[in-house]
Simulated assay, not measured.
Amino acid sequence: MQPSPAEIARTLSAGHLPAVAHIACRPGPVPVRHVTDAQGRVLLLVPSEGTLAAALRPQDGNDDTALVLDIRDVPPMASSPTLGRVWVSGWAVQLTGEDARAAALDYADTDACGDLLDIGESQLLYRMDVAEVRYERNENLIEIDPEDYAEATPDPLRTVEFDLIADLADHHVEEMSDYVKRQLGPAAKPGDEPRVVRMDRYGFLVRMGKNRSARLAFPRPVTDRHDLAHLLHPILCRRCTSDSAAGHTAA
């Protein structure tokens, strides 16, 4: 299994990557701090004084403002392929009172920053209801149904992906190399030096050489870092001989 486009879009838009906003009838793009809540709605944390707050101010009697959030993946390693780019479009409205307080708690689930304490004073909080989602990778553009996007969940390993890959590279190169070669069998070539370059809830991508890679899948999606450690233990423990932690597909 591999992440669906909707799952990748939710992962990219979760709030861990830099984003810029293209706001209707305003110069831009403008850098913006954001997260997405459990329903996939975008929450924007905006300084009350500045270009972004002025750009989001409704015009012509409206109470919301159209914008597009543009988020590009930042690969964990220089050798890691990018997951692509996502555009999330919709209408943003400023939240006040109980709505703002409830949304601040949702925001803190992803980014518990101190500025949330100043909402209504030095900071404003906006919520954008999602109307359109587009995902682009390798020059292929996919339109994602907003309902599929809302139902998907961000990958639980995304925030620790760098740490996980770095740990494998620093401490478990031999074990991972032996495991990958056993899994690939005849598809592995002499001189291959497998290196994990990406990881997600469904498995990991291994770079075999300059133009070759293989994806190895877990028997089930992992739920968090501890669950991943449990699945990888038979691979990384030299005393274990079980090869049941993953299947594979070669690319």
Rank of each mutant, 00 (worst) to 15 (best):
V93A: 15
V197Q: 05
A150G: 06
R72P: 03
R134Y: 00
S122F: 04
I142K: 07
S80I: 07
A187Q: 07
D70H: 15
W87M: 08
L116F: 06
D178S: 03
A188S: 15
L124S: 15
T153A: 11
G120W: 07
L184S: 10
Q123N: 12
D148Y: 13
E143D: 13
N138C: 03
L124K: 14
I144C: 11
D163E: 13
N138D: 15
Q183I: 01
D115V: 00
D148T: 12
D73Y: 13
V160M: 14
I119L: 06
P75G: 02
D145K: 06
E98T: 14
M77Y: 03
Y179M: 11
D167G: 01
H172C: 07
L125D: 01
S177T: 14
A104H: 03
A131F: 02
R137V: 12
V160N: 13
S122H: 05
V93E: 06
A100M: 11
P190D: 12
N140P: 00
V130C: 02
R134N: 02
R158P: 00
V180N: 11
E174T: 12
T110G: 14
A108V: 03
I165Q: 14
T153Y: 00
Y149H: 08
L124R: 15
L124G: 13
D70K: 07
V173P: 01
L117K: 02
L157D: 03
P81E: 09
Y179T: 04
A152Y: 02
Q123H: 14
